[in-house]
């Protein structure tokens, strides 16, 4: 369990969570980046950049 850096709400990670994965805060909907999984650390995800894609 970690706290959302935006709203402070509790966010739980799935067992297979990966560092670098983006998850949504169930409370405020913010996109959060998984910085660490053990213990879980979350940061606000980077904003979408113009050159992102495939």
């Amino acid at each position: 369990m970690a706290n959302c850096p935006e709203c402070g709400g509790e966010v739980s990670l799935h067992d297979d969570a990966e560092v670098g994965e983006i998850i949504d805060c169930g409370t405020c909907g913010a996109e959060l980046e998984v910085i660490d999984v053990d213990p879980p650390v979350l940061e606000t995800a980077p904003e979408l950049e113009e050159d992102w894609g495939e």
Partner: peptide, 27 residues
């Protein structure tokens, strides 16, 4: 080499690990 782990990367990581390869995630 990644900057965001999408579902696509998770699928690849899972497949590599399942086959016993050593995977280094490089941000």
């Amino acid at each position: 080499l990644y900057s965001r782990i999408r579902h696509d990367e998770k699928l690849l990581l899972g497949e590599f690990r399942e086959r016993g390869h050593e995977v280094t995630k490089i941000d």
